[in-house]
Design a binder for these strands. Sequence first.
DNA 1: CTGTTAGCGCCTTCAC
DNA 2: GTGAAGGCGCTAACAG
Lengths: 348, 348
Amino acid sequence: MTPRQNRPTINQVAAAAGVTKSSVSRAFTRPEMLSPETVRKISAAAERLGYVPNHSARALSTGRHGNIALIVPDVANPFFPPLISAAQSEADRFDYCVFLGNSNEDPGQEDKLIGRFAGQVEGFVLVSSRLSDDQIVEHAARRPVVLINRDVKGIPRILIDSAAGVAEAVSHLATLGHRKLVYVGGPHGSWSNKQRRIAVRRAAKDHGLEVAVISNEFAAFESGRKITAAALATGATAAIAFDDLTAQGMLAELADMGVAVPADFAVVGCDDVLGAATYPPLTTVSNRSVEAGKAALNLLMEILQNNAIRDVRYVLDTNLVIRKTTGQVKAGKRSEAALGSDANRARN
Amino acid sequence: MTPRQNRPTINQVAAAAGVTKSSVSRAFTRPEMLSPETVRKISAAAERLGYVPNHSARALSTGRHGNIALIVPDVANPFFPPLISAAQSEADRFDYCVFLGNSNEDPGQEDKLIGRFAGQVEGFVLVSSRLSDDQIVEHAARRPVVLINRDVKGIPRILIDSAAGVAEAVSHLATLGHRKLVYVGGPHGSWSNKQRRIAVRRAAKDHGLEVAVISNEFAAFESGRKITAAALATGATAAIAFDDLTAQGMLAELADMGVAVPADFAVVGCDDVLGAATYPPLTTVSNRSVEAGKAALNLLMEILQNNAIRDVRYVLDTNLVIRKTTGQVKAGKRSEAALGSDANRARN
DNA sequence: CTGTTAGCGCCTTCAC
DNA sequence: GTGAAGGCGCTAACAG
């Protein structure tokens, strides 16, 4: 058994309909140029033969492929799938197909993927790109590029401004009586991570809070667990994590350690990818990834239509979603924290 | 500012290298046919001009695109991303690009996507396809198709056999003293759902357990919450859920209801997509989605290479992963269950 | 080993 | 409103 490949061509349809291939072509691209009668005849013949225009031939002739590529650092990170899904749906509305690339957090891989896709797409959406600014600018010079969560001047970009939500989180923690907090960071190449770290520092300063920063290159549940001891060791009474996964890992580890949340230690996540599905339900910064995906695609479509890029910088705001992992600091905690770490004690 | 599109063609490279385009073409496809000297000359010229072969032209000429399409019912369901990622990585090894399609659980949409992709891919991987057998057979007649978690005779398929793991779960629950359990189902079109339901029934019979079945069309956290009351109302002391998301929702709802897990009610998930990230850590059936994605892609590649499909039916086995949501039935529970539902009492 | 010659299937001027 | 002809960029016989 061998897979068939022989699809009918424009010529066969033409013959069947008793016209030339020009007319068949027109019937599929600019029917208004033909008499309704002819169009009907051709459509019928095409239908009967199961004719579908050959994509490559059309692309070769027009230079347009009707494809775009979407590249993300890690498909399996729950932050991305909803974004991917949203982008996909939008692309669909415009009759575009989308290539998905998974860079696996590796700039080299990302670059390679872009190269592989370049020949058959109209443009790119790069999500949380790990490429250097220069590389991005270079690629953008060849094909339209829209960035999500990456701020490169001159390149159209959608930014989810977690700063606002993070600042709100800090303020919220201050109100609850926390005096020292720790920011548990994410990937180095991540624009969001940098933005969040800065936002925490700034807001903490505004509220007169102390802040420690520790780093956690690969953001995920397990690494969240692992970094928890270090977070406690800073003497902070609350943590703001780079993302929900990290926060969730911390929650699990804290539970194992017998540290009560939020009574003994507060945890705030970021991106709200878990919803209320953690235990306790996680206080976190809202998620705008669906809107971001949608906006990026619309922006790209607009660029492709007008064949001209504008230096758009579209910012999506966020806010704090308060659930159950933040609360009033316990009576003794405030001074205890001031004395330094009690992490080792908590451990036992 | 207008995006540039003028990429150098094979002719320009030929001119620059002082050869004909045939040689340039060969330098890129079968360099062993040329003298090393010529290849070097051509490579240099190509490099200098930044030449990259035009994908569409090549596809038009060869009939090969170097693309495959992967279609899933719901990108955002955590079961799929790891599979997608694995497939993507494998495709990469073979220098294939992958289109991602999101059918959104809708057969119509799935069909439409397949049509859209058909012209520019060598083959398809359909994951948990919602199409009818006939539709699948029809598509497979045009382009190679590999199925994951869908069992259609004659179509190469990878099946994750959750039956074994589910049976193990039932046996585990029987050992713990449960006498009645409830299967909380998933999407109607899902092969996995059917398989699991049957496995539960069969294993329950083997162990002399009573089993109720309730349905939950859209498997997710929220719907898991909603169905919990009904699950309790069956009088069962343990639930096996279609997937981890549903189980997680049930866990949250049970916590809110004040029903202790596993003391008052046991919960088993399926697919192990959450790892130990629930609270309590979820007992569940192991996940083979990464292997499935990898296997499907390798199978497709093999088919494309040999240009002949074999009727492969590759089954991936599963087992029970015991964590903390299953435990010994409480002393009084067994007889209580026998008397009927106490769900309404638990609710208050 | 390398050049010559036809297309691949479609779109698009240019005529009629 | 429709046909004829050329070309998009590349590959694949066929010669030499």
